[in-house]
């Protein structure tokens, strides 16, 4: 199942959600942010090489980290040499091998956001409670709807300890999972580790467990 983690606005925590969700689901996370990758990389071919036809997507899969990852190159030259339309094929190829393919989408509303949505079975929208972030997330929801990627959950990221979720759920027409503001989570992400490994009892870790359970329930509909 291909799951697009998207949100419209930059800096709302899409990569953090995608990485930790993939860890919970024991799936593969694909860094789909072709021009501004930020998931842990390493040696060997990456998504730029796959989209430029220099490697197969299976060659770009890294299994040595705490989460199975398809990293993306860091250079603009690499992003320019990549053919974005090849992304849909690459994701579908992974989908045949992995039960869960989680795509970390870039910010914005261009084709690099649309392409994962075109092949995704479900969408997880990430937003913060800020008005600008919610407006952008609503725009992406519209795009996801047009491209037949059903909205599974809205992740309200960086909330306080007792957030009000009802208005957000009403606005998006989908259930909300909240992820509290968390130093443990920020530190884990900076070190390229899922939070369940560094702080398994933290509220953030619980939130991702809940999100993964929700995604399971979406897949069984």
């Amino acid at each position: 199942m291909i799951l697009a983690v998207t949100g419209g606005k930059g800096g709302v925590g899409k990569s953090t959600v995608a990485y930790n969700l993939a860890a919970e689901l024991d799936g593969v996370v694909v860094d789909g942010d072709l021009a501004m990758a930020d998931l842990p990389a390493g040696h060997g071919p990456d998504l730029h090489d796959v989209l430029a036809g220099r490697a197969t997507v299976h060659e770009a899969v890294r299994v040595d980290g705490p989460v199975t990852t398809v990293p993306c190159g860091r250079t603009l030259a690499g992003a320019r040499a990549a053919d974005p339309t090849a992304l849909t094929d690459a994701l579908e190829t992974l989908d045949r091998t992995y039960r869960w393919v989680v795509v970390d989408s870039p910010a914005g509303l261009r084709a690099d956001v649309g392409l994962p949505l075109a092949v995704a079975d479900a969408t997880v929208l990430v937003t913060t409670p800020a008005t600008a972030a919610i407006a952008d997330a609503l725009r992406v929801r519209e795009l996801a709807r047009e491209l037949d990627a059903g909205l599974c959950r809205v992740v309200l990221n960086r909330t306080g300890s007792d957030p009000v979720t009802r208005p957000t759920a009403d606005r998006f027409g989908a259930p909300v999972v909240t992820v509290p503001d968390s130093d443990a989570l920020a530190t884990a992400q900076r070190h390229g580790t899922p939070v369940r490994q560094t702080a398994p009892d933290s509220p953030a870790s619980d939130a991702f467990e809940k999100l993964a359970a929700a995604v399971y329930s979406c897949s069984s509909v």
């Binding site: 072709l34 021009a35 040696h43 060997g44 071919p45 990456d46 730029h48 090489d49 430029a52 190159g73 860091r74 250079t75 603009l76 030259a77 690499g78 992003a79 320019r80 040499a81 990549a82 974005p84 339309t85 870039p106 914005g108 509303l109 261009r110 084709a111 690099d112 956001v113 649309g114 392409l115 075109a118 795009l143 491209l147």
Partner: peptide, 25 residues
């Protein structure tokens, strides 16, 4: 999708001269 939403590749002017794609890794 690309036709409708626009090519996401960074513009050529954004890529520094003399940096080839092969230096990526």
């Amino acid at each position: 999708v690309v036709r409708e939403l626009g090519d996401p590749s960074p513009p050529a002017d954004a890529v520094p001269a003399g940096v080839a794609a092969t230096t990526d890794a």
